[in-house]
């Protein structure tokens, strides 16, 4: 009986989910300027330090096992926060890329396609990295590094700057200086 009730409850929740998603489809999507305002600052260097294996090894040799676990958990929590920011920004860049894909200017559309593709990978990698760091939070002695996310994130921001340059060549230098 319990399983039957559980299945019915799940089915009703799914039904509600589909109805709400259908109603949500009516909402209008945000524009490019609204999206850029939603980008969050992410300190990439700090994130690199937090996930640097040598740094971790140094702490491991200098601290007692208990102290290391406590500090490592703090570091992991901070890393997960950074990854949350990276993932959020990737989703914004993804939406910007999708808007750019519809541009009548073929160069901008192509840059938009590349940005979309890179941002998608970043979003997926950051999701996987958050899962990995979550596991490490429970087992701080395990050795898993989300390093690929940093490289991918850099590729995405570079693609975003390329797109910015194409859309407004006069001001494109500003973006390249920023990156």
């Amino acid at each position: 009986m319990i399983i039957t009730v559980l299945i019915i409850a799940t089915a009703v929740l799914s039904l509600l989910f589909f109805v709400l998603r259908g109603l949500g489809a009516v909402r209008t999507a945000a524009g490019a300027s609204e999206l850029t305002q939603q980008i969050m600052p992410v300190d990439l260097e700090a994130f690199r330090n937090l996930t640097e294996p040598l740094e971790e090894e140094f702490l491991r040799t200098r601290l007692s096992a208990g102290q290391f676990r406590a500090i490592q958990r703090e570091r992991l929590r901070a890393s997960i926060d950074y990854l949350g920011g990276v993932s959020h920004n990737a989703s914004i860049l993804l939406q910007l890329g999708q808007l750019a894909r519809r541009s009548p200017d073929e160069r901008i559309a192509e840059a938009g396609r590349r940005l979309t593709d890179d941002a998608l990978r970043t979003r997926l990698y950051s999701m996987m990295a958050i899962c990995k760091l979550g596991v490490r939070y429970v087992f701080p002695d395990a050795a898993l590094q989300p390093g690929a996310v940093i490289d991918r994130y850099e590729q995405v921001t570079e693609a975003a700057v390329r797109l910015g340059r194409m859309q407004h060549p006069d001001r494109g230098g500003l973006a390249s200086r920023a990156l």
Partner: peptide, 26 residues
């Protein structure tokens, strides 16, 4: 109708650049 990114006006691009600058320098 599909929203398109038009050639952005200057303040939009400045916002975009500022956001990227904040993103990488903070």
């Amino acid at each position: 109708a599909a929203k398109q990114i038009e050639t952005p006006v200057i303040h939009e691009l400045e916002d975009w650049n500022a956001a990227l600058q904040r993103l990488l320098q903070q």
